[in-house]
């Protein structure tokens, strides 16, 4: 469904993505793990054009450049580490902002119901807990009716006790293609069809979660896993 071919990204002199290629199938859940600075977030951000990268991205066999920019972006729902809710809009207004929404009120309300926040609809994001904010952010991304959900360390900014509620919501989206950058190894193992391990801008190893966690093939993967598991 998504094919990344020879993706390269530089921040000035820093080569953060080195010739990365990856294929993601329809309805597949891929978790990307790796140490900080390995380029996993950048790779995710290249997919929906938050970063401009060189290389080719094909979506449903069609090159990214052959799509209308806004049409292309609307296929990817993005959830950020820092939530990035719009503070001057209420929860419902946040969700209803997605331009592709037509029957606005009902869909927004339904999505908030889906993430369990019906009662918070009319308050401002500032009054929410971290976990609630992230659930609103997920509902907001879903309001675009995307085909793929991108999660950029969705639980890293949360208090430990809030992590569960957000992971539950992510888990419930099992009918969608999901790409998740995460440090939650247990969650990655549970939810992912495949885990991608990245280091220093390269994909070191891709495998099924159990396989990768039990028998990492590369020295670097072993080293990393021994520290985080």
């Amino acid at each position: 469904m998504i094919s990344l071919r020879n993706i390269n990204k530089y921040f000035d002199d820093l080569h953060v993505l080195k010739d990365v290629s990856l294929d993601i199938k329809h309805c597949e859940t891929v978790a990307i793990i790796g140490p900080s600075g390995s380029g996993k977030s950048t790779l995710l951000r290249c997919i929906n054009e938050l970063e401009t990268c060189s290389g080719d991205i094909y979506y449903k066999m069609k090159h990214k450049r052959d799509y209308d920019t806004y049409d292309y972006r609307s296929k990817f729902g993005m959830v950020f580490q820092q939530f990035n809710l719009f503070p001057h809009k209420t929860v419902l207004e946040n969700v209803n902002l997605a331009p592709s929404l037509h029957q606005r009120k009902t869909i927004g309300a339904n999505l908030l119901n889906q993430v369990g926040l019906t009662d918070k609809m009319d308050i401002y994001p500032k009054k929410l807990s971290g976990g609630q904010k992230q659930r609103v952010a997920i509902a907001r991304a879903l309001a675009m009716d995307p085909e793929v959900m991108l999660f950029d360390e969705p639980t890293s900014a949360l208090d430990p006790e809030m992590v569960g509620e957000v992971l539950e919501v992510i888990k419930s989206l099992n009918h969608m293609t999901r790409i998740i950058v995460t440090h939650e190894m247990g969650f990655a193992k549970e939810i992912a069809d495949r885990i991608v391990f990245m280091d220093e801008g390269k994909i070191v190893e891709i495998n099924h979660p159990r396989e990768l966690m039990a028998n990492p093939k590369h020295e670097r993967t072993k080293q990393f896993l021994s520290k985080v598991l």
Partner: peptide
């Protein structure tokens, strides 16, 4: 992040 969120919402 506000610019990014807006961009991601297309």
């Amino acid at each position: 992040g506000q610019f990014e969120a807006a961009k991601a919402l297309s």
